[in-house]
């Protein structure tokens, strides 16, 4: 009787971890650029708020809050370029920031109307049209 030599068991086949998902769509590519634009605006506004606080007007709280928004936007822009499950799960963060932007712009518009002053073009572009575009593009992405 012959015995067959035992062959050590091979490790079970494992599927590669999904480190990278599918390439982002054109919509997500545009969303990412728009988030970068919001990030640049937040960075510059943080700088302005820091200077305002440094020269003795107001407190550093607005600078800290705007800096925090910039960090969130930086993370969101990074995630928008990835299709990984974690990035997709964090998409709610992008939605939340855009909704906050729109809500803040809504409050400003109400105050301006109450004071009888026409809302400005640039806030309408940066704080209404831009977040609304991001929301529409993300909605179409689902």
């Amino acid at each position: 009787m012959t015995t067959t030599p035992t062959v050590p068991l091979a490790p079970p086949p494992t599927a590669p971890l999904p480190l990278a998902g599918p390439a982002p769509s054109d919509r997500m590519r545009v969303v990412r650029v728009l988030l970068l634009l919001e990030l640049v605006v937040a960075l510059v506004t943080t700088l302005e708020a820091l200077i305002v606080a440094a020269v003795g007007f107001g407190t550093p709280v607005p600078a800290v809050l705007t800096g925090a928004v910039a960090v969130v936007l930086a993370v969101a822009a990074r995630d928008a370029g990835r299709g990984t499950p974690g990035a997709v799960r964090r998409r709610w963060l992008v939605l939340a920031v855009q909704v906050v932007f729109l809500a803040a712009a809504g409050v400003d518009v109400v105050i301006a109307m109450f004071e009888g002053v026409a809302p400005l073009l640039l806030p309408a572009l940066v704080r209404i049209a831009l977040p609304a575009t991001v929301l529409v593009l993300l909605r179409g992405e689902r």
Binding site: V52, F57, G58, V61, T66, A112, P123
Partner: peptide, 27 residues
């Protein structure tokens, strides 16, 4: 106008926005 705490937070940026946590008083 900053809300946390209530205080001046500057003027609307040339980029059209106020810092986070503040509202814009138009006049």
């Amino acid at each position: 106008f900053g809300l946390l705490p209530p205080s001046l937070a500057g003027l609307t940026s040339p980029l059209g926005v106020c810092p986070a946590g503040s509202v814009t008083v138009a006049l």
